[in-house]
Design a protein around this nucleic acid. Structure first.
Lengths: 144, 144
DNA sequence: GTAGTAATTAGAATTATTCTAATTACTGAT
DNA sequence: ATCAGTAATTAGAATAATTCTAATTACTAC
């Protein structure tokens, strides 16, 4: 339990800083994502969160996730048509989707590469975001 | 109607070259994608194809699209959790998703940029494919 | 021409997500 | 503190895209 994710006051501050009312549900959903550095689906978040808040509903989990994504505290990622996954890593990064294990790895994106990627856009195209997804196989030693 | 997409024999050859039986349904589905250089959904392909083959079923359209994608004659693209779209452009390219209009534009990817992108992968990561999706707004003049 | 396999089909089933309408919990003004 | 108004939560129904199922039809090779 890092001070970052386990502390009630810190989570509240993060939410308030985004102009979001710090409800217990939002806190516990945010905490469940920040504390594990993986890429859970809404269902997985629901399962985790029920451990500490058994009364929470799936609809609320969806609502909280949507709120957290739109205020920028978590990111969402999609692989093909699979269920949306949620990502605590806010630094610019790509995703590597291991088809063998189903696991998702964050791949750091240096500023220079990001700049090179954006340079492919012809004039008239204004991008708010870029999503880069690799698909392939990672050796077991390549852990994240 | 280009010779590429409108010719029965050419379509057959493309399918046979992939070890896929050239059925009338597969031909007409492939043709409907090749002839328009856009990014239709399965439903849109279904609608187009019914014009020339009213008896075709949606399940068959899905089956044909799956076959065509897995033999590499068309590509599939996804934007968030939206319906899968199909793309006739087989050259390496990124996609620009215009949030205002919903339109999708192909963005050519020079080999040098592709190489730079792949260079971010640490050892142990073997990527079969990379998907690059920009989200933003394109000026009306930026036509594809 | 027939047996065996592959493709197509209609409709049911599934999955992830969103919507609806009701309840509960806050907030700010008094 | 009290109350009105708004925001958040909830359970369950509804939706959308896709996949599955089981039956039929069409090929292919002998």
């Amino acid at each position: 339990m890092s001070a970052q994710s386990d502390n009630h006051a810190v989570l509240c501050e993060q939410l308030k800083a985004c102009d979001v009312r710090p409800t217990p549900q939002r806190e516990v959903v945010l905490k469940s994502i920040l504390e594990k550095r993986d890429h859970p689906t809404a269902d997985e978040v629901f399962a985790r969160v029920k451990a500490t808040m058994p009364s929470i509903s799936l609809a609320t989990v969806y609502n909280c996730l949507e709120t957290l994504v739109s205020c920028g505290l978590v990111r969402s990622v999609n692989f093909e048509r699979g269920p949306t996954r949620y990502c605590p890593n806010l630094h610019p990064h790509a995703h590597f989707h291991d088809v063998a294990s189903g696991a998702t790895h964050d791949i750091d994106l240096p500023e220079s590469v990001l700049a090179k990627i954006k340079s492919v856009l012809p004039p008239g195209y204004a991008a708010d975001s870029v999503e880069i997804v690799f698909r392939g196989k990672a050796t077991p030693s390549a852990r994240n």
